[in-house]
Amino acid sequence: MYAETIVYLIMAVVSLLSVVAVYLAIVERDLIKAVIYSALQSGFYAVLYYLLMAPDIVLVYLPVAVGLIPGVLIVLISKTERWEKE
């Protein structure tokens, strides 16, 4: 009984932390930092997927959301501009 509560607790904590990451990713004006926050959010989602028993999705999602999308976004930022104006 208490084991499932712990698992659900970890799910809840991880998703709350992802809210923090999402919030920071949206309000942050340094876009590099925003990308890092979104990568962090992706990491939390990956843990969440894992706890929701979806290893396939973790394997798809990690390369895409932690590896490729931050990569291309950092390339885009390095080729364009880093700061979001007020």
Partner: peptide, 16 residues
């Protein structure tokens, strides 16, 4: 768990 996309994406980390 895994499959074509997952394996390909893991391999693709090397060129990247």
């Amino acid at each position: 768990p895994g499959g074509g996309f997952q394996g390909g994406a893991t391999i693709a980390v090397i060129p990247l």
